[in-house]
Simulated assay, not measured.
Amino acid sequence: MNTYLLKPCLAAVLLSLSMASFAADKGLIAIITPSHDNPFFKAEADAATAKATQLGYTTLVASHDDDVSKQNQLIETAIARKAKAIVLDNAGADATIGPLKKAKAAGIPAFLIDREINATGVAVAQIVSNNYQGAQLGAEKFVKLMNGKGNYVELLGQESDTNAHVRSQGYHDVIDDYTGLKMVAQQTANWSQTEAFSRMESMLQAHPDITGVISGNDTMALGAEAALKAAGRKDIIVVGFDGSDYVRDSILAKGNIKATVLQPGWREAEMAVEQADAYLKTGKAQKEEKQLMDCVLIDETNAKNLKNFGVQP
């Protein structure tokens, strides 16, 4: 065989592969979430990255750690790198509006997940869990577990996060109807497991007679559970919110945590990328901007089916 004939053929093959690779790369999608130390936010980033890669995009994945300044810098970086779209779980309902307006002016559409902002028309989509509906599910289970009576405490999420307020309101719109249940303390733990451990220790010292803890998220619920275990208090019921695998394991092991509320974070992140892809192809939004996804109660009856913030068949 003439080896000289192989060179043009090889060049053609390499050119073909190069063109295929170029065609598959649709550009950059920036994926920005809070800290990946929280399994919920890590799952969001993982799901969005996997879907973007599947659809032919490259990704820039970063965490703003709930720091508005850091978030603004990351959005600036996305603009500078001419990202095709931004998928964002934001660091503040008000503070995020200005940076996203800047991205929009630069021709970069934003697709929000998990947390809303206090404006419409700035992002193409805001795909969030129905936090109020989910909180009511959690509260109803909490009331049942508490037999409608007893003293309890509440752990709140970050003050700047709309979800923290919506979930608390959903809890109280159910629990407050039961006169036998009395909230004796309410403290913010900023979605943090470490802070929740500390807050739980102090609340337990001040109110040793409590029999229940309702938490704004699973990370704080796990911090509370760790403090209760350290104090030898197996009698205190904890209900969380998010649907993490760690809380699933506690429910199955019959720990302090008896239930949680699953918000479908994995699917929300996938939907954001899918809608970004459709928007970039057509120039039109697939759905209305505000999109609510219903939550699911997770307890001893279905915890075994929970994995990666989704219920498996």
Rank of each mutant, 00 (worst) to 15 (best):
M1Y: 08
L5M: 14
L6S: 07
V13Y: 09
L15E: 10
S18L: 11
I29K: 07
F40Q: 00
D46V: 11
A48R: 07
G56Q: 09
Y57M: 14
L60C: 07
S63Q: 07
H64M: 05
K70A: 12
K70S: 02
Q71W: 04
A80V: 15
G92N: 09
A93F: 03
D94M: 13
A95Y: 05
K101H: 11
K104P: 04
A105V: 14
G107I: 12
G107D: 12
L112F: 06
E116K: 12
V122I: 14
V124K: 12
V124A: 03
N131E: 06
G134T: 12
G138T: 12
G138Q: 03
A139P: 04
K141W: 06
F142P: 00
F142K: 02
L145D: 05
M146Q: 03
G148M: 04
N151S: 14
S160L: 03
N163I: 08
H165P: 00
R167M: 06
Q169V: 14
W191L: 03
E195T: 13
F197V: 06
S198M: 10
R199E: 00
R199H: 07
M200S: 06
E201D: 14
S202T: 15
Q205G: 12
Q205W: 02
G212Q: 02
G212P: 00
G216A: 09
G216Y: 00
D218E: 03
M220C: 10
A221R: 03
L222K: 04
E225M: 15
R233F: 07
I237G: 00
V239D: 00
V239N: 01
D242M: 05
D242E: 08
D245Q: 13
Y246T: 11
A253K: 15
K254T: 14
A259F: 03
L262V: 13
G265F: 04
W266Q: 05
A269G: 01
A269N: 06
A269M: 05
M271F: 11
A272C: 08
E274Q: 15
L280G: 06
T282Y: 04
V296A: 02
D299K: 13
N302K: 09
N308T: 07
G310K: 11
